[in-house]
Write a protein that binds this DNA or RNA. Sequence first.
DNA 1: GATTAAGCGAGACGGTACGTCAGGTCTTGTG
DNA 2: CACAAGACCTGACGTACCGTCTCGCTTAATC
Lengths: 199, 199, 199, 199
Amino acid sequence: MPATSSQPRRPRSGSRRDEAARLAVLHAADDLLVERGFGALTIEAIARRAGVAKQTIYRWWPSKVEILLDTLIEDSEKRIPVPAEPPTLESVRGYLRGFARFLTRDPAGKVLLALIAQAQHDPDTAKSFHARYFGPRRGHERDMIARGIDAGEFAPRLGPDATMDALVGPIVHRALTGSSIPRDLVDTLVEDLLTPRSD
Amino acid sequence: MPATSSQPRRPRSGSRRDEAARLAVLHAADDLLVERGFGALTIEAIARRAGVAKQTIYRWWPSKVEILLDTLIEDSEKRIPVPAEPPTLESVRGYLRGFARFLTRDPAGKVLLALIAQAQHDPDTAKSFHARYFGPRRGHERDMIARGIDAGEFAPRLGPDATMDALVGPIVHRALTGSSIPRDLVDTLVEDLLTPRSD
Amino acid sequence: MPATSSQPRRPRSGSRRDEAARLAVLHAADDLLVERGFGALTIEAIARRAGVAKQTIYRWWPSKVEILLDTLIEDSEKRIPVPAEPPTLESVRGYLRGFARFLTRDPAGKVLLALIAQAQHDPDTAKSFHARYFGPRRGHERDMIARGIDAGEFAPRLGPDATMDALVGPIVHRALTGSSIPRDLVDTLVEDLLTPRSD
Amino acid sequence: MPATSSQPRRPRSGSRRDEAARLAVLHAADDLLVERGFGALTIEAIARRAGVAKQTIYRWWPSKVEILLDTLIEDSEKRIPVPAEPPTLESVRGYLRGFARFLTRDPAGKVLLALIAQAQHDPDTAKSFHARYFGPRRGHERDMIARGIDAGEFAPRLGPDATMDALVGPIVHRALTGSSIPRDLVDTLVEDLLTPRSD
DNA sequence: GATTAAGCGAGACGGTACGTCAGGTCTTGTG
DNA sequence: CACAAGACCTGACGTACCGTCTCGCTTAATC
C-alpha cells in the first residue's frame, strides 16, 4: 500500500520518480508541522527543509494538504489499524485508547488534527480528507461495530455510524481543545454506549 | 455588552471610536466567512467589503480571529445561552439540540467551527479562543452539570468536564466532518451518559 | 519634465510616491545593466539592489523596459539634447559627435542600445520605445534638418527622415557591432550627405 | 556546407547524428522566431515544436543563439552572397538592395536582427556572432570594397570598413526601428559615399 | 550474428525569476 | 484624534524554463 498521492505513473522511458525526494518532502512536511505549526507549513518551507525544488513538490502533489494526507494515511495504518478480526469490548477499548494516544502523543496525530481543521477552511481539503482518509477509515470502523453486534459482543442503541461518532467524538473534541484524554473517559464511553442497559 | 477586543479607550479629546465602522467590520467578516469561506477571509477583503481602511481594523483588532471571536461571543450568547437555572434532563437535551442546530444551521455556527479549526493552526488563536469563548462557556456548562447532579436530576459516571465533552464531542465531531446530527444521537447521549445504570 | 512612466496620480489622501525609492530603482537598473548586462537585469535583482520591494516596482512600472526608458529619457535630454536653434553644419556635426560619444562612452548609451535590442525581441518594447523615446527624438531631429534646409545651411538629397537615418545609422551600427566610432566617420558623413554636390 | 556548430564527431560505433532531428530543430527555431518572436524562443519550445528531446538540442548546440547562427549562415550564404568578382557601382547597389530586402522581407532577416539584438544583451552571443557571421562577412565586404577601389570603380573617402558601416548602417538602422527602406536611400548612399566629389 | 557504444525521446530534478496577493506598518490629508 | 486612502517591505503563491541527469529503446559499426 504505497499511499502515493496519485496513481503511479508508468512512463515507458525517462527517469523514475525519486523516492528519496518523496520521503524528504513527507518528512519535511511532518517535521515542520510539529515543530512550527500549520502556519509555517508553506510549500516553500517544505521545499527548503527537504532540500528539494519547489517544482518537484508541485509535480507530485497538488497541495500541501495532499502531502499531509500521504503521511497521515501511511502513519495511521501503521499506528492505529482498525481491528480486522471480530471485535470484543476489550479490543474496541484498546483501539480507542490507541486513537487517544495517537492524537495526543504521536506527532502524526497533529497531522490528523491539522487536516480536520483545514477541512473547515477549505472545501477541497474536506473532499480529499473524506475520500482518502476519513471515508475509508470510517468504513472499517463501521464494519468493526457491525461485526461486534452480529457476534452479540455488544448492543449499542445507535447505528454503527452514530456509535462511532459518540465514541470518537469526545476524544477528538478534547484533543481539539487541547485537553488531555483521561483513561476513564474512554472506558466509560465504551461501557455506556456499547453495552445494553438492563432497564 | 461591548464584546470589544480591548478595554474601551477613553481619549481626552479627538474623535471617539466609530461604531458604524465597528459593526461594518464585524458584519463584513461574518458575511465573508459564510459566503466565501475562511480562506477568503483576509483583512484586505474585510476592509474592502466593510468600506473601511485597513488601518482602522488593525487599530482595534489584533487579528481577524479576534473579529470572529467578537461576533461569536455576541451571537452565541444570544442564540445558545447556557441554562442558568437548575437543569433537568429535558433542559440539557434542549440545550444540546440547540447547540447542534447552531452548528449545522446557523451561519454563526460556521464561525465557531472556523475558530476551533484555526486554533489547531495557531497557538495565539487557541489561547484567545479559550480565554474569551471556550473557557467561560465550559465553566457555565460545568456549573450546569454540577447543579444537576446536586439536585439529583442526573448522575453521570464521569466528572462534569468529561461529561460535557462526552455530550458535546460527538455533536462537534459530526459537524466537523460535515455530517448531519440526527436527533436520536443527542437524545441517546443524554440518556446513556447522564442517567445512572441500574446494574 | 518628470519623465515618469505614467500620469502623476493625485490621490486626495494617503502617502505620496516615495521619490527616494523611484530614484533607487532607476539607478539600480542603470547600474545593473552596465555592470552585469541585460541578462542580469531582472526585476528581482533591481529590487534587491535598490533595497526596494518587488511590488513597489510593479506598482509604478509595467516592465523593466519602462524603467530603462525612464532613465534613458532623462539622461538623453541632459546629455545629447537636439539643438533647438537653427542648425549649422558645425552644430549638426557636434550633435552627431556627442551622440557617438554617448553610445560608446556613456553608461546611459548602453541603455539605448539595450532598448533597441529589446525592441527586436518584444513588440511591446518596440511600441513603447517609439512612443516615448524614438518618435519624439526623431521628430526633433527632423525639425532640425528641415530648419537647416530652410535656412540654406545644407541641402541633403534625401528627405529629413532618411537623412537622419543615413547619418545616425552608421554610428548606431558601429556601436551595435562593438566597434569604436572614428571621428572622420562622422565628419565625412555630414559632408557627403548634407552638402550638395556640385556635379 | 555543414554549418554545424561543432566538428563532426567520429564515433567508433553507435548511431550517427540524426539529420532529421538537426533539421527539425533548425526549422522549429526559425519558425518560432518568425511566428512568435524571440521571447517565445525557448529551448523547451523548440524541442516541443521539433518533436525532439531537450537533451538532443543540448547535445549539439551550446545555446539557442548557435541554432540561429546555423540557420542564418546557411540562409545568408544562399540569399545574399557577397559578390566575389570585381564589383561595379551597380553590383554594390544590387548587393545593398538585396540586403535591404533580406532584412525587411525575408524571414531569415528576422534572425539576423534578433542576433544583432541578442548580442547587445549577452557577450557570448556577441563573440559568437562576430566569429561565425559578422567577422567573415565583413571580411568579404571589405575585400569587395578594396577590389572596387583598386579597379578605380569607386573612390570612397572613408576606409573600406567605415565605408561598409556607412552603407549598411542606415539600412540596418531602419530595419531595427521598424521602418521600410526606400530604394532611393540605398541609391543615394552608394552615390554619395562611393563616388568622389568633384569639388 | 552478437556485441557495444552512441543517439534519441522522455521526463525528473535543483534552480531562478516571473507577476500577483496579502500581511502588517507607515504616512498624509480630511472632518 | 479617528478615519479613508494608499505606499511600502516582506514573503509565499503557482508557473515557466533553465541546464543536468538518468532511463530504456533503437540503430549502426566492429568484432
